[in-house]
């Protein structure tokens, strides 16, 4: 890998990091609207409001950047960046095409990815603590509780895949992936995706930001560009979670004509999963705080353990 190659790859990652979340956000605008019998944004940009999020960005950029008087200034200002950047780093390790279709092959890729994704949650925690606002604090506490509850089933489900593949490297997992892993790891896939949703605080697991209960949780005091960064982090999180679920459980770039069109398969699977995230948001009401905890500890953790047992049994028998 020479310098130009590295630069091109990093540029591609940066570009997809800037474009894909906006694409998901715009899709959410339109899909959610149509699922509710509306049409969503129609004016910005001319054609069916395609530039709505660009317009939103311009609006956010114009707003005053306010830091509350009692806030822990430095931490408060740093939080949005900490929420956003981990998702950018995760993209570096996600393989999108066979044969070097990844910016950086990491031997312990899955460790890196899950660890860095966990760091993203810290942004919400910092914002919640530093805002000097009781709603922010409540949101932060809920975020922390959710992180603790759902990190475990997520890791267990990911561990099942690594057991099946015998490697921690993401391209390595895809290298040995077979189609029958789909039913084999189906339970793990559901657990991983659900836990991921909860970590992203997406509805129906959005109790930490629940705008109708605690204003906007940890983001209550944020305005302007910093608030926009938090929102962007949410959509970047959707992209990363969808891509990761596609790589671990849906075979990533596997598909007909994978040699040439692998990246398209990867994009398609990621897109379908992102659509699912939006679909779930529109369809289901918010879970109560205790329901969220109960789902994690009484449903997802046992299911994930069952998946690991299943993986182990199949692995030993074969």
């Amino acid at each position: 890998m020479d310098a130009v190659d590295v630069a091109v790859r990093l540029l591609a990652v940066l570009l997809s990091f800037l474009v894909l979340p906006l694409l998901v956000g715009q899709t959410e605008h339109k899909v959610m609207a149509h699922m509710q019998g509306r049409v969503g944004p129609m004016h910005a940009g001319g054609f069916h409001g395609w530039a709505q999020l660009v317009a939103d960005g311009v609006k956010f950029a114009q707003k005053e950047d306010i830091v509350p008087e009692g806030a822990d200034r430095r931490v408060f200002q740093l939080a949005p960046a900490l929420a956003l950047i981990p998702y950018l780093l995760v993209l570096v390790a996600i393989p999108v095409a066979p044969g070097g279709g990844v910016v950086q092959v990491l031997d312990a890729g899955i460790f890196f990815v899950l660890a860095v994704m966990g760091v993203g949650i810290l942004g919400s925690l910092m914002g919640g603590w530093a805002s000097a606002n009781k709603f922010s604090l409540l949101g932060g506490l809920r975020t922390a509780a959710q992180l603790l509850a759902y990190e475990l089933p997520m890791l267990l489900a990911a561990a099942s895949v690594t057991m099946a593949a015998g490697t921690l490297s993401l391209p390595g997992i895809l290298g040995v992936w077979e189609w029958w892993w789909l039913p084999w790891q189906a339970v793990g896939a559901v657990v991983f995706f659900t836990a991921g949703l909860a970590e992203l605080q997406r509805p129906p697991f959005d109790a930490p930001v629940a705008d109708s209960e605690i204003i906007f949780g940890a983001y209550t005091e944020y305005t302007g560009l910093r608030f926009a960064l938090f929102l962007l982090a949410e959509y970047a999180g959707i992209v990363v979670l969808s891509a990761l679920t596609a790589v671990l459980f849906l075979g990533g770039w596997h598909g007909p004509f994978a040699d040439g069109l692998g990246w398209l398969w990867m994009l398609l699977k990621t897109g379908v999963l992102a659509f699912g995230v939006i679909w779930l948001r529109v369809s289901y009401p918010r879970l109560r705080e205790d329901q969220i905890q109960r789902l994690a500890w009484t449903a997802l953790v046992p299911l994930a353990l069952f998946q690991i047992a299943l993986t182990g049994v199949v692995k030993v028998v074969m």
Binding site: A33, H34, M35, Q36, G37, R38, V39, W279, V282, S283
Partner: peptide, 12 residues
């Protein structure tokens, strides 16, 4: 329900 609504024409 949500998927069916999405395939229908909106009433806006």
């Amino acid at each position: 329900v949500t998927l069916r609504t999405m395939t229908r024409r909106s009433v806006t």
